[in-house]
């Protein structure tokens, strides 16, 4: 945890193209007639952990789901504005959405392993990418499970059903499933809200280790968690980005009154 104090701060406003993982510009989003996101613009830095906080229903999940276009699956969802990843507008109609999603992994609040063996769960994405060699798959599975700190617990029962795992193990399996694809960006929607404190710590450590390999975006209701693990934090309220700064300054001296109210618990 030492490196928490040593990290160098990037200036979010002047982030260069190389330093930016996701560049959101003037994003508006509607579910039917209800506007859920309102003119959101932000740059998410590469190889950092960015946390999204905000009241329930403010649009956090919606925002990060638009980074891998999961909102496309919802009937009546419309959006405007651009989201650039690697300099490409992902909302372009010719964007290969399947490839985008393989590149931008996502872990949901509730673990939902597929009803297959542990091995097949981890392979799922790789097989879709056309990887069929048994040796290569074996190696990738082992690596992903090691990355997710699950290998030692499951190495003897790789071919048993994933459903027999505990909730925390399942969540780590889901991590491994996403990590197997070696994504550049990992979107985490409240990944620890259903887990016990110890497993939560496990996963937080995992996230910090992942920073070397990818950009992590996390939604959390846990203020301590955001302060502990994230480098940058964005506070969202009613679909608007209210404040976005490095976590230390946002939690110690928020610039906006709304932010201060929220993090001190005087809000909603």
């Amino acid at each position: 945890m030492l490196n928490l104090f040593e990290r160098e701060k990037l200036e979010l406003e002047t982030l260069s193209q190389e330093q930016t993982a996701i560049n959101v510009e003037h994003l508006d989003l509607w579910f039917g007639n209800k506007q859920v996101l309102d003119d959101v613009s932000m740059r998410i830095p590469k190889h950092q952990i960015t946390a999204f906080i905000g009241q329930s229903g403010c649009g956090k999940s919606t925002l990060i789901s638009s980074f891998n276009r999961m909102n496309d699956l919802i009937d009546g969802c419309r959006y405007r504005g651009s989201i650039e990843i690697d300099g490409r507008d992902i909302n372009h109609p010719r964007e290969n959405v399947a490839r985008l999603r393989a590149n931008v992994g996502m872990v949901f609040q509730r673990p939902n392993p597929f009803p297959m063996s542990i091995y097949d769960n981890v392979c799922y994405g790789l097989k879709l990418q056309g990887m069929n060699l048994r040796r290569a798959l074996d190696d990738a599975v082992e690596q992903a499970l090691r990355d997710a700190a699950l290998w030692d617990e499951v190495k003897d029962r790789l071919f048993e059903s994933a459903n027999i795992l505990s909730g925390g193990q399942q969540q780590r399996l889901v991590f491994a499933r996403a990590l197997a694809l070696q994504p550049e960006i990992l979107l985490l929607d409240e990944p620890t809200s259903a887990l016990d404190p110890l497993t939560t710590l496990y996963i937080e450590e995992l996230m910090i280790n992942l920073k070397k390999r990818c950009t992590v975006v996390i939604v959390t209701h846990n203020m301590q968690q955001a302060a502990r693990v994230s480098d940058y934090t964005a506070f969202i309220n009613q679909g608007r980005l209210i404040e976005y700064a490095d976590s230390d300054s946002l939690f110690t001296m928020p610039r906006k009154k709304q932010t201060e109210d929220y993090i001190t618990g005087r809000y909603g």
Partner: peptide, 11 residues
């Protein structure tokens, strides 16, 4: 959730 997970893995 299962469907969403599958899509999120690039299916």
């Amino acid at each position: 959730g299962i469907r969403a997970s599958s899509y999120a893995l690039g299916a």
